[in-house]
Design a protein around this nucleic acid. Structure first.
Lengths: 101, 101
DNA sequence: ACCATATTTCTATAAATGTAGAATATTCGT
DNA sequence: ACGAATATTCTACATTTATAGAAATATGGT
């Protein structure tokens, strides 16, 4: 994870609407949520939501998989872990130098 | 740390120039760096640098203290820790549920 | 084939962002 | 008081972003 890529991910998370979307999907775990479910939960117009999701996908933080008519969104935790490691190793004190397995 | 505030900090870090500034200051620890030192290290025009630093200060990630003619910038690690805790608790898997002291 | 569902892409618009030169402010030394 | 050093604020401009309605695309059911 280089600096450019970390910045891109941080920018994607650096918007309250997108951070709310991401947090919902973290809560939903491996099951994820359809775009429609996110829309209903957070009450965001479809086209606005679609753009925000696209930004998160483009940053590598989400994955979308089609399931019949619905698109299921899930968090890409391996990429999120990489971002966390970048932050721990470059942006924190030594107290954070504890890595996940 | 609420979602809005976390998003604001993430947005501040979500730009490669600002992330580079922040990383330099993390490296410098409690001593910090003057604006001029950052300017020389990263080769950023003064006015551009000033705006980026202001954004990081406004987000609560940096603190500036005047020392004679120079302004010394240091990382506000307590606020950064709060952001990290938000990320660990809201945006990560359980593997990250290890907190600093 | 047609209709309903689910989501994206198109289009438009207002606001925010990044950049950086020029002008201004603050502090220090003489 | 004046000049040098340090950094911010002013100004301008091009680019990007966030928002969301309308149109288009893709899928599935009848």
């Amino acid at each position: 994870m280089n600096l450019e890529n970390a910045a891109k991910k941080l920018e994607a998370l650096g918007n309250s609407t997108r951070l709310a979307i991401f947090r919902e999907l973290v809560k939903s775990g491996a099951e994820g949520n359809t775009v429609g479910e996110i829309r209903d939960t957070l009450d965001i117009p479809a086209s606005t939501l679609s753009h925000h999701i696209a930004k998160l996908v483009n940053a590598g933080l989400l994955v979308q998989e089609r399931h019949s008519r619905s698109l299921i969104c899930t968090v890409d935790h391996s990429n999120m872990d990489d971002l966390m490691e970048f932050l721990v190793n470059n942006c924190c004190t030594e107290e954070w130098y504890i890595q996940p397995d």
